[in-house]
């Protein structure tokens, strides 16, 4: 946006800018929705097209040299038609239960979202605490930062079952009963705290030397500088991290469910339908699609919150 010249009638200019911004924002949203819809349609066409070609030549493309060996078969078991996947959402997967698959997937998504949410919140608290701790001294930062980075190379998601057992044996002292899904939240926390700690620290360190001197010139305390300057300055960085962390917490929850076998969530649903693939491949596809939608919805929610929190600020794109 162009800056205003001095002495222009402010109210008029302000209204004009606001109208312009609202229109630009709306156009942006519409464009993104259109592009996303186009992407989904293109993907479906690619899937259906490949399937149609393969079936018309009787899967003969699998005999092609070099690439043929990796081409998936196109029969209805390996690649069920998209129409069948869509109509499956309306069918009840259990014989003595009227609940449709769509409802099952929706409820499972909420369950997983709950696991992810608690993990996400705990991860933000942990990540921010680490960032504030590392802000206090270069020595602490040097001592901790390598391990924050290394922590993400530990395949903790792989040992979800161990964490479930560990959680049950070690959290007996808590005032509430430790549920298995809470252990899944721990895994989500583990994936969430990392971007928050790294970007949080970057954001807390982002104010210019002059801004810090300004606060010093007011004899502001360390806490005041943190709350009035460093923390607000870190918000764009934090949101970049939160977008990563939100997806990571969903991934952590899904993988945690899959590897620990904790039931009720979308990860467990995928696992179940994968093991009963031959009797209904459409259900696996539908539940995977449900997981994809969950990831994108959570990401979208954070993006909306970001836009709201950063309104009025200069456009910033911190490198993450």
């Amino acid at each position: 946006m162009d800056s205003l010249d001095e002495g222009v009638d402010a109210a008029v200019v302000r209204a004009e800018i606001r109208r312009y911004e609202r229109r630009a924002r709306l156009r942006n949203v519409v464009r993104r929705v259109v592009v996303f819809a186009a992407f989904v349609i293109a993907l479906s066409l690619l899937y259906s097209g490949y399937k149609a070609v393969g079936q018309s030549i009787d899967d003969a493309q699998r005999d092609w040299p070099v690439i043929g060996s990796v081409m998936p078969a196109t029969n209805d078991l390996i690649m069920p038609p998209i129409s069948a996947i869509l109509s499956e959402f309306d069918d009840p997967p259990q014989r003595r239960n009227a609940k449709t698959l769509g409802q099952f997937i929706f409820e499972a998504s909420l369950f997983t979202a709950r696991e992810a949410f608690f993990g996400f919140v705990a991860g933000i608290v942990l990540g921010l605490s680490l960032a504030i701790l590392m802000l206090r001294s270069r020595t602490i930062e040097r001592g901790l930062m390598p391990y924050v980075v290394v922590s993400q190379t530990v395949p903790l998601v792989a040992i979800a079952p161990i964490i479930v057992i560990w959680g049950q044996t070690n959290f007996g002292w808590l005032p509430f009963t430790w549920n298995a899904w809470m252990s899944v939240s721990i895994i989500a926390t583990y994936l969430t705290f990392f971007p928050v700690a790294v970007n949080g620290l970057k954001g807390l360190q982002s104010p210019s030397a002059e801004s810090i001197e300004l606060m010093d010139s007011y004899a502001a305390s360390r806490t005041q500088t943190l709350l009035k300057l460093r923390f607000p300055a870190s918000v764009p960085y934090l949101f970049a991290a939160l977008k990563l962390a939100a997806s990571a917490s969903i991934v952590g929850a899904i993988v945690g469910e899959i590897s620990s076998g904790v039931g009720g969530g979308i990860g467990r649903l995928i696992l179940d339908f994968a093991s009963r693939y031959t009797t209904g491949p459409e259900r696996l596809y539908a539940s995977v699609a449900g997981a994809a939608v969950l990831g994108i919805v959570v990401f979208g929610l954070i993006s909306i919150a970001e836009r709201y929190a950063l309104r009025g600020r200069a456009q910033e794109n911190p490198v993450v």
Partner: peptide
């Protein structure tokens, strides 16, 4: 147009595709 799309698609738990890939 593509970058925001890729960012959104990146939010999909890709690991959930593993069983489908196995059958493919």
């Amino acid at each position: 147009a593509v970058t925001p799309l890729a960012v959104a698609v990146n939010a999909i738990p890709i690991i959930a595709l593993a069983p489908i890939f196995n059958f493919w």
